[in-house]
């Protein structure tokens, strides 16, 4: 499991200014670390589609937002994602909770559809399962930012 302090420290160091999120039970454990960060501003939204649009306004206004939500939220927010990443062509980065990834033979359809949906969107993604993977996530973030393209970090979860 990836810890909040590890994520908060790494992405603050990477230059992220705002975290725009809706938590699930795994990502939610990050809340204290995100709130206590001196460098990150935590912004809560009411529904996942809002996260992409809010992050878009922040990026256009000169900030470096990070979007955080569960894979179910990724599905819910498809039209906002489409608009922001493909109409507006903004190079936003998101961490997506990969519900049930760690549960062998899980029948969870959220697990089954996550990677096919990302592939259908043509979005580049990297899977992270433990804190040891956080440096690679940050490298991926930097690579996407340098190439001015969107990217996704998949956060392995149990039940999410």
């Amino acid at each position: 499991m990836i810890s909040g302090p590890s994520i908060a420290a790494a992405f603050a160091q990477a230059g992220v200014s705002h975290v725009v999120w809706i938590p699930d039970s795994t990502l939610g454990t990050w809340e204290p670390a995100l709130e206590q960060s001196r460098d990150l501003k935590l912004l809560r939204v009411a529904r996942e589609g809002e996260a992409w649009a809010l992050a878009a306004g922040l990026w256009i206004g000169g900030q470096q937002p990070l979007v955080v939500m569960q894979n179910t939220g990724l599905f819910e927010s498809g039209d906002a994602l489409r608009n922001v990443l493909f109409d507006l062509r903004l190079p936003l980065y998101a961490l997506i909770g990969y519900r049930s990834y760690l549960l062998a033979n899980s029948p969870d359809t959220a697990r089954a559809f996550t990677e096919p949906v990302l592939q259908a969107w043509g979005l580049e993604y990297l899977l992270a399962t433990t804190d040891d993977d956080v440096p690679a996530l940050v490298d991926h973030y930097h690579a996407c930012r340098q190439a001015a393209r969107p990217g996704i970090g998949l956060i392995a979860e149990g039940r999410g």
């Binding site: 809010l54 878009a56 306004g57």
Partner: peptide, 9 residues
């Protein structure tokens, strides 16, 4: 929400 992002930025 786009406007909110601009206002915060």
């Amino acid at each position: 929400l786009v406007a909110l992002g601009l206002a915060l930025a």
